[in-house]
Design a binder for these strands. Structure first.
Lengths: 298, 298
DNA sequence: AGAGGTTACGGGCAGCGTAAGGATC
DNA sequence: GATCCTTACGCTGCCCGTAACCTCT
């Protein structure tokens, strides 16, 4: 065939696949940083050159026609092959684009700087969009296609998401030495004289603290949940309460004695961090980056 | 990944594959109806975005680097998938492009009109570039990528070419009734009193006539080989000699008595026509068109 | 010296963004 | 009425073609 321009393009295939996943043209436009008419036109042109319809737009959500479903099957395979090609022969330093990364705040305060350094050395032209939020939110973002990769508390246990273990952080009771607490074998009842400072509602530490207090006797439990890690630490330093966080976050403050790990009789569950991502055509790149994160997290 | 524009395009993959096959940028430019700098730029851009070289341009011919070879492997699979997708869901009536078809003159004078009619009904927007030539030339054109499909004498027996049987034409001695020849059981010696009129050098009938005459006794053989079918028929009608062609070509002239099939004692080999093509990403379309040709050829 | 590839520059066209219209829930 | 897709229009930026230069055989 002399002129191949009559066939369908990789960009069109990507777009079809995204619409199928997100169910809306406008949603895809936002994801791809473009306008909704641009997406409309892109699909319309592909439909014209092939003489078929990919989507039924009559309803509120765009739904695949049988031809569209078939196109998606092929698009997945085609784009996966292309991703594999780029992964195998492409120079990482030449890769351009934007990777949207979601991270738990714990990660930000521990090994994220080390990761970023490695990342920027290997992928100097790949820009990173960072979203810091709690793990449950990150899971939602992943499933909605708003981020490409997340470093979050696992296991996620969602079939649609790939995951890879990263680091395991023990969680402990940490407080300012100015608080008047026993040196050893502190019981829950002792701890409960102070408020607990931990992560926002919806996080695993919050749930655990809440559960712990619910089952213990005594007065009404007080939990100060903060979405801001800095605030949390500030309050702990000021002796406002007992922080329930991984010591790794505040290792400097522990080292110079401004905070101490309490010798509690109660063991808290570890925070097991994982890298999680959806199966997309970029899975090769993303799993390499997940490997990089695993290195940084030791 | 937010912006996917950083990756390699289908057009680039097609171009890489073509260069690998033809061994030259300029050759590809001619094939794709574009200029050589356009091809240079297309490849250069792909190489930049991936940070690798696909071709070694130092020699006279462009030769694949290891990365280029790998890219070709993927390109083949990717483009084949795309071709299959278009074949399965695309409306034939919507297909645009140019198919370069090579045909033997015998086909032109027999079932090609019927084929063209069917073709135009099913693929009204697909333009056809017709090359009429002898089968050996068509085979060369196919291997050089100058045509996409050929209806020619087979079997071709070249591993690089796909083929599909079409029609079988018996070849016979045909002459004007004005020639003074016996009615039945004509021997070669009788025939040799007249020149033989047949296709150009390099064709199967020519070779067979030459061989036949070489092995028979008698005076020097005379063969009038013509690259033009019209000239051939004209000479036969004018009684200049004995045509060695498939009667199907001149069935009208035989029907109204201007030419007669001679009852020779010697059987000539049939012309077995096949559709032949190379394994490209368009193989799905092309094999459908070959099927169409088979229908027309009965 | 000729064939083939690269680089430089100007123009045309595809594709995008803005804005307005129409359909569905 | 809100949301979503389509259509129309003006523009920008990319890609192509022309031309000159460079490099190998």
């Amino acid at each position: 065939m002399k002129r191949a321009g009559s066939s369908i393009d990789c960009k069109a295939l990507e777009t079809i696949l995204l619409i199928a996943r997100l169910g809306s043209f406008s949603e895809v436009a936002r994801t791809l940083n473009t306008t909704q008419p641009a997406i409309s036109l892109r699909i319309a042109e592909a439909e014209t050159t092939l003489g078929v319809s990919f989507f039924d737009r009559s309803g509120r959500r765009a739904v695949l026609t049988p031809e569209g479903r078939l196109a998606c099957d092929y698009a997945e395979r085609i784009l996966e092959l292309r991703g594999e090609l780029v992964d195998r022969i492409g120079d990482p330093a030449a890769r351009r684009g934007t990777l949207r990364l979601g991270v738990s705040e714990t990660v930000v305060h521990t090994w994220l700087p080390s990761f970023l350094e490695k990342f920027n050395t290997i992928y100097p032209r790949l820009t990173l969009e960072l979203d810091v939020d709690i793990s449950t939110e990150l899971r939602t973002f992943l499933l909605q296609g708003q981020i490409d990769l997340a470093f979050m508390v696992g296991p996620v246990g969602v079939p649609a998401l790939q995951e890879r273990p990263l680091s395991c952080f023990p969680v402990d009771f940490i407080a300012s030495p100015t608080l008047d607490l026993p040196k050893e074998k502190i019981e829950i009842a002792d701890l409960k004289r102070h408020p607990f400072l931990t992560f926002a509602r919806g996080t695993l530490p919050y749930a655990e603290v809440a559960d712990l207090l619910k089952r213990s006797s005594g007065g009404p439990p007080r939990i100060f949940a903060s979405a801001s890690m800095a605030t949390l630490i500030r309050m702990a330093l000021d002796g406002i309460g007992i922080a329930v966080i991984p010591p790794a976050i505040v290792q400097d403050d522990i080292a110079n004695g401004r905070l101490v790990r309490l010798q509690s009789s109660h063991r808290l569950r570890d925070l097991a961090f994982v890298a999680a991502w959806t199966e997309t055509s970029e899975k090769f790149l993303i799993s390499r980056i997940a490997d990089l994160a695993a290195e940084s997290a030791q």
